[in-house]
Design a protein around this nucleic acid. Structure first.
Lengths: 349, 349
DNA sequence: TTGAAAGCGCTAACAA
DNA sequence: TTGTTAGCGCTTTCAA
């Protein structure tokens, strides 16, 4: 060991922490500043020197210490992800795409599950602040409004994805539910369906209200009248999907010739109920679900058409947006990304 | 601004990085060393001083910089999580529990998705090493053996969970599939079932082979003979579950009076097929599935009994094990955690 | 009980 | 083109 003015002694000291830039410099017989320049492809260096340093660094297995770097640069190359979905079905594709987009830029993601507990959320936030994250992504189990996350230092880049903050300055990325519904209805109309029922989820979900709006808009532009008897709503379960069919088909009025369901579980439940009643799908009744969840759509008989929220695209977009915010750009407001329709046997015309 | 010997100037310099320990010390009119001791509840300080520092720190919103801390201490208070499940259904509960266990100790988790791509895995590993993680957790979509992750610095604590490394020195945590199967079969036997079929998944899965072993062991200890005609295997789909019923019930031999299925999708497919054949569940045939996946078990009619792999417990255990490894303990070998059986209507006797 | 200062590994400004 | 050195924010001896 030596003092500040001397060179550090041999190979590392603490535990398994590998060679430092000092070691590289010494082995390459250059100054530490030169080594730094070579390693960071910065400054003006002779190609020869640069190569030597790089070669040595590789040879001795040098890995820069991001922690030390971050002490200088403004950035820690980490971001936080706070989710309230318990990493559920909707978060998955989003998180995966987000992580990949960010990893490609050398940014690592701290994953924090808050499970709708404000106390846990603050605790996580506190930890993330200590880690000096460069940005934050907030996601949830549903895209409804939530109080803005906080407290966080002013200027911290934040993106809400599949989640909306009750704050006009926030940037939120969510699927275009209304557009998704229109896609489904337009498709059914194009297939010649005229009495399209909407098997909806609970109305406290904004998504449900938006989809109903899309449904109405599409009917209207197709010149079809809205029949309130064709709107039923209930919980997000297969059981309710089955019950909904009973409700719709035990009536006296003319029967529906199509079902637009707010998720694939409802659609699957409905399809089973129809099957048991001997009603042909799609012959007598067509079905379109929502979410495009393969576990449901591919196991149903026949396989279910469904609206895909493109959650992977949403995740990519969230990563890209965060990068832009970090780069200093200003982004705000709610951005709705388009859904797409996956057509399978259940809605063939 | 001043030089090394002076006090730093005013409140922070770069971007939004908040007050430093210097600021705290100055505001509390103590030395920086004293402030550090107070903040870390270390050394010998007058209570009064300690309180003053803490008060000031809180007042000016001081948050320690983990990055700077980690430069001294051996630990970064971060760990990496490399998953090959795309954060899928099995990873979820594990990751959630793991994250919670670690967060309680102030450790944050870097989430990395490798999607079975060795190149991505190495890239992630490289990033994690630069971040100087204190430990690593590896998880996957299936508990089968995989090549040990690497290269990593010797001595890096690693836990494999729902994944096995092909390395006797590695510590792996996986569900006790054989025990889970025994639970199911013992239950069916206790309910008076005598001809229990095994609707298995693909045999390349170790879990499938272990469950068959458990099935055989339980039959044997119940004094029941094994009938190879009662073993069928195929892909993990509902469709195959339905087909399996056709195979088992179209035979000439005496029919099964129970079905043990290697996952809940198989069980659900089977239950639908039985239903369509007018075979009463559990009256004529009992069913037990595996995974206890509510989406399947609760929507089936009747609801399905199922073996629960206790993935949440597995995740907690993984977190605890990693903490112990980080603390210097030595752990190795494969540890199998018990499953439990959740009984629902499909196997009532 | 407190203060001073060396230095963790790295970068960047300046000097040579 | 390369070397020197002052820090980034914090901890930790060692002195006082």
């Amino acid at each position: 060991m030596t003092t500040r003015s001397g060179k550090p002694s041999g190979s590392g000291r603490a535990g398994r922490s590998g060679p430092t830039i000092h070691d590289v410099a010494r082995a390459a017989e250059v100054s530490i500043g030169t080594a730094s320049k070579a390693l960071n492809r910065t400054g003006h260096l002779r190609q020869e020197t640069r190569d030597k340093v790089l070669g040595v660094a590789h040879a001795i297995g040098y890995r820069p210490n991001d922690l030390a770097q971050s002490l200088h640069r403004a950035r820690s190359m980490t971001v936080g992800l706070i989710t309230n979905d318990s990493f559920g079905r909707f978060s998955f594709p989003i998180v995966e795409a987000l992580e990949q987009t960010l990893a490609d830029q050398g940014i690592a993601v701290f994953m924090c599950n808050a499970t709708d507990d404000p106390a846990r959320e603050r605790q996580h936030l506190d930890q993330l602040m200590r880690k000096r994250i460069d940005g934050l992504v907030v996601t949830a189990r549903r895209a409804d409004k939530r109080p803005p996350i906080g407290p966080v230092p002013a200027g911290l880049p934040i993106v809400y994805v599949y989640s909306q903050a009750d704050d006009p300055g926030a940037y939120c990325l969510i699927p275009d539910d209304e557009g998704g519904a229109r896609l489904a209805i337009d498709h059914l109309v194009a297939g010649g369906r005229r009495r399209i029922a909407h098997v909806a989820g609970p109305e406290r979900f904004e998504a449900v209200r938006l989809r109903q709006a899309g449904y109405l808009a599409s009917l209207s532009s197709a010149g079809l009248a809205y029949d309130p008897a064709l709107y039923v709503n209930g919980p997000w379960s297969e059981a309710w999907g089955r019950d909904a069919v009973a409700r719709l088909f035990d009536g006296a009025s003319p029967l529906p010739d199509a079902l637009f369901c707010d998720n694939d579980q409802l659609a699957r439940g409905a399809s089973e109920a129809l099957r048991e009643r001997g009603i042909a799908i799609p012959g007598q009744v067509a079905i379109v679900g929502f979410d495009n969840w393969d576990v449901m759509t591919l196991s149903a008989r026949p396989q279910l058409s469904s609206v895909d929220m493109n959650l992977t695209a949403l995740g990519h977009e969230a990563g890209a947006a965060l990068l832009r915010l970090i780069a200093g750009e200003h982004l705000s407001g709610v951005r709705r990304l388009p859904c797409s329709l996956v057509i399978r046997a259940s809605s063939q015309s």
